[in-house]
Simulated assay, not measured.
Amino acid sequence: MGIYQITVDADSPPQILLGQNLGGAIVTKLEQVKQELISAADLAKAYNLSVTTIRNRLAAINQGTGGKHMYNPEMAHQMLKKDNSNKRGRKRAN
């Protein structure tokens, strides 16, 4: 009998229960791994934004130093996914 580890990266927790049979194996342990901090450059690639834009939008949750900007991936995702565009003026008349 061996111990195998499966890593799942998802927005919501998977529907796996203790004692469940998965591919001939029984689930005996479930735990959530603490996420590492992610850099502004990695977030810029993921969201197709500039590094400067990422740093400006996430200045409130910066956990790194002034030269090394590091962010919690969950909090960064929540702040970057909402639309921050400022709409000014009247609506366009078609």
Rank of each mutant, 00 (worst) to 15 (best):
S50A: 04
G67A: 08
D42P: 03
N56T: 06
K68W: 00
G2S: 15
Q32I: 14
I16L: 13
K34F: 12
Y4K: 15
D11V: 12
R92T: 11
L17D: 12
G66E: 11
H69I: 08
P13F: 11
R88M: 07
A25L: 15
G23D: 02
D83Q: 05
R88G: 07
P73I: 02
K34I: 12
R88C: 05
A46W: 04
A40Q: 05
K45Q: 08
I3P: 01
R55C: 04
I16V: 10
K68T: 10
A40T: 05
Q20W: 07
A10P: 00
T65P: 00
N84G: 11
V33N: 01
Y71S: 03
N21V: 13
L30Y: 02
L49G: 06
H69R: 15
N48F: 09
G24V: 10
R90W: 14
M75R: 11
H77S: 11
N56M: 06
K82Q: 15
L22A: 05
V27I: 13
N86A: 09
H69M: 05
R55L: 04
Q32N: 12
G66Y: 08
L30I: 04
G24C: 10
L43S: 00
G2D: 14
E36Y: 13
R92M: 11
G24R: 10
T52P: 00
R57M: 07
A10Y: 10
L17Y: 11
I26G: 09
L17G: 08
H69Y: 13
G19F: 00
D11F: 15
L18R: 06
G89L: 07
I6K: 14
E31R: 09
K34D: 11
D9P: 00
Q35G: 07
R55T: 04
A59H: 10
H69A: 07
G64Y: 07
K91H: 08
H69N: 07
A60T: 14
A46C: 02
Q15F: 13
G66T: 14
A40C: 01
A25D: 13
D9S: 14
Y71N: 00
I16M: 11
I26E: 08
E74C: 10
R57P: 03
M75S: 12
G66M: 13
T53G: 06
T52G: 01
T7A: 12
N86Q: 08
V27F: 09
M79T: 10
N86G: 07
Q78D: 12
Y47I: 02
G64E: 06
D83E: 01
G67E: 03
A10L: 14
I61R: 00
